[in-house]
């Protein structure tokens, strides 16, 4: 039956659909950008008192933006790689959580809880200072630059959080599916990979993207352990411009703006997927 024309539909056959819930206040990405820009500009009004020979904060940001944006790309690279590593490891850990082997489930539970409840910065410190800067394997020296170590440091909490997402999603599929699969003589592994996980992808996507947005924002923590990412560079740029206090807000505001413009669309998209995939 065609559903395009609403007039010729029998009311009885049309399922009840509640109006999609909307966020009370929604800021479109464009207006958000304008808002942020205004904030940065307002913060830099202090410049007006300074002499006319100096570059305005905006000119300074323009001058340094290639370097700062290079740092930002680095942040994104770290977050994407950490997410990739963490997702692969987290999927394995999540399946281990659901394992029928008591021992495996217990060990993976312990691992998950540990990495989920440890502060990200502490994990980062551990990885940074315990892993050497290079490893020598069969006479070839493989350098491990700081950002790779930081990536691993971020991948650990991602792994634990993804594991919980996987476990939750699989658990949320009605048990009857397991029984149906069993009655059709699917093995446990087949049931998991062919029936459960494909159904879970939809449910896992929004929380997974949430985790990603969190990771992307957390990559600035790497500045504390000396990775030359955007925040580190922002501090160095501030120093190179003579550490003028009135530059503090515009420079860090620029970093804020970059992260906001990157993360806010992800959040919007997550919210849309959540609405679309809502289990009714």
């Amino acid at each position: 039956m065609k559903t395009t024309g609403s007039g010729n539909r029998l009311a009885v056959l049309v399922p009840y659909r509640p109006a999609p819930a909307r966020m009370p206040v929604r800021i479109g990405p464009l207006s958000a950008a304008i808002l942020c820009f205004c904030a940065v500009m307002a913060a830099s009004t202090a410049w007006a008192e300074a002499g006319p020979t100096m570059l305005s904060p905006l000119q300074i940001i323009v001058k340094w933006s290639p370097l700062l944006l290079r740092g930002f790309v680095f942040n994104i690279a770290i977050s994407l790689l950490a997410m990739l590593l963490g997702t692969v490891a987290g999927l394995g850990l999540g399946l281990a959580l659901l394992s029928e082997s008591r021992l495996l489930a217990a060990v993976s539970w312990l691992v998950t809880q540990f990495f989920r409840n440890a502060p990200w910065l502490v994990l980062l410190f551990f990885v940074m200072f315990l892993v050497p800067f290079q490893v020598t394997l069969f006479k070839t020296t493989i350098p491990l630059p700081d950002w790779i170590k930081a990536t691993v440091g971020f991948a650990l909490p991602v792994m634990a959080n993804v594991a919980e997402v996987v476990r939750g999603a699989v658990r949320s599929i009605p048990a009857t599916q397991w029984e149906a699969a069993e009655s059709l003589s699917f093995t446990r592994r087949q049931t998991m990979w062919l029936i459960m996980l494909p159904q879970c992808i939809k449910r896992m996507l929004p929380p997974w993207m949430n985790i990603y947005a969190l990771v992307a924002m957390s990559t600035v923590l790497a500045s504390i352990v000396g990775v030359s990412e955007m925040l580190t560079l922002t501090a160095q740029v501030h120093a190179a411009e003579g550490g003028r206090p009135e530059l503090f807000a515009p420079l860090y505001g620029f970093a804020l703006l970059c992260f906001f413009l990157y993360c806010y669309p992800i959040n919007l998209w997550t919210a849309r997927l959540e609405r679309r995939f809502r289990v009714r």
Binding site: W64, P66, L67, R70, L233, Q236, H238, A239, A240, G242
Partner: peptide, 14 residues
């Protein structure tokens, strides 16, 4: 150092 002008700091090319 990369934050102590003029002993060691960044130029705009990085």
């Amino acid at each position: 150092k990369a934050d102590y002008k003029p002993f060691g700091y960044r130029d705009p090319t990085g």
